[in-house]
Simulated scan of single mutants.
Amino acid sequence: MGHGGNVIDELMTDHREVEEIFGRIEALPSGDKDRKVYADQATQELVRHSVAEEEYLYPAVREHLVNGNAMADREIEDHAKAEQLMKDLESRDASDPEFDQLITTLMSEIRSHIADEEQNLFPQLRVACSPEALDKLGDKVRTAKKLAPTRPHPSAPDTPPANKLLAPGAGLVDRLRDALTGRGKHG
């Protein structure tokens, strides 16, 4: 969850971790209950990651990149689609016939989003921002991930300042629910 380094290194490490979880899901047969455990783990990571990007990365994209507003809007739109998929997945067991379709769609959406960020957005940000600014953003993103929700909240605000105000409270409630239910842990 907190890796150190600049914002791009931090987020790319998150991308690799989520891809590793996706690989575990794909390695298991349809209906295996561990697919749900891994789907919950992926959701927890993706929600924290998305909240941190929406709080700090996308405002920086808007500020520093030539086409920043359009890029940030597209990324937030991607997050909204993924968040709705995660919300739909949340209520389904691995044995549910819709589970496989939802997790496959989510993995496809996330992989496309990751490729776009890593091939387009991150290289532009690396050019537009000083190393110090990228390091500061990395610190802010790490802090945001620690406080962020771990469950999808599709109706929550996704732009500052409202998201920065509401995310820590939702995150606290989510982490308590996860601890009480054992969500994302092997039984």
Rank of each mutant, 00 (worst) to 15 (best):
M1T: 01
H3L: 10
H3D: 11
G4R: 07
G5H: 03
N6P: 00
M12R: 05
T13K: 12
E17I: 14
E17K: 06
E20W: 10
F22M: 10
R24T: 04
I25D: 00
I25Q: 01
E26N: 05
L28S: 02
L28A: 04
P29K: 13
P29R: 14
S30C: 12
K33V: 15
D34E: 14
D34V: 08
D34T: 10
K36G: 01
V37K: 04
Y38A: 06
Y38F: 15
D40Q: 14
Q41T: 01
Q41R: 09
A42C: 03
T43G: 03
Q44I: 15
Q44G: 13
L46P: 00
V47H: 00
V47I: 05
V47G: 00
R48V: 08
R48H: 02
R48Q: 13
H49R: 03
S50V: 02
E54K: 08
Y56C: 12
Y56K: 04
L57H: 09
P59Q: 02
A60L: 15
A60F: 08
A60M: 15
V61F: 13
R62S: 04
H64K: 15
V66P: 00
V66W: 07
N67R: 13
A70Q: 06
A70K: 03
A70L: 09
E77R: 11
H79T: 05
A82R: 03
A82P: 00
A82G: 02
E83M: 05
E83G: 03
Q84Y: 13
M86Y: 06
K87D: 08
D88G: 14
E90K: 09
S91I: 07
R92A: 10
R92S: 09
A94I: 04
D96A: 13
E98A: 14
F99A: 07
D100L: 09
Q101H: 01
I103G: 00
T104E: 12
T105A: 13
T105Y: 04
L106T: 03
M107D: 01
M107G: 04
E109K: 07
E109T: 13
I110L: 13
R111L: 12
R111F: 12
S112M: 08
H113T: 07
H113I: 10
I114P: 00
A115C: 04
D116G: 14
N120Q: 14
L121R: 06
L121F: 07
F122I: 10
F122N: 09
Q124N: 12
L125M: 15
L125V: 09
V127A: 11
A128F: 05
S130Q: 09
E132N: 08
L134N: 04
L134H: 02
K140P: 02
K140D: 15
V141N: 01
T143Q: 10
T143M: 13
K145Y: 06
K145C: 09
K146D: 07
P149W: 10
T150W: 02
R151G: 13
P152I: 11
P152E: 12
H153I: 02
H153A: 02
A156N: 04
T159C: 11
T159N: 03
P160I: 07
P161S: 15
A162K: 03
A162R: 03
K164G: 12
L165T: 08
A170P: 00
G171T: 02
G171W: 09
V173T: 09
V173W: 06
V173M: 06
V173Q: 05
D174S: 08
D174Y: 07
R175Q: 11
L176T: 15
R177L: 13
A179E: 08
G182V: 07
R183I: 00
G184F: 00
G184C: 04
K185N: 11
K185C: 08
K185T: 13
G187V: 14
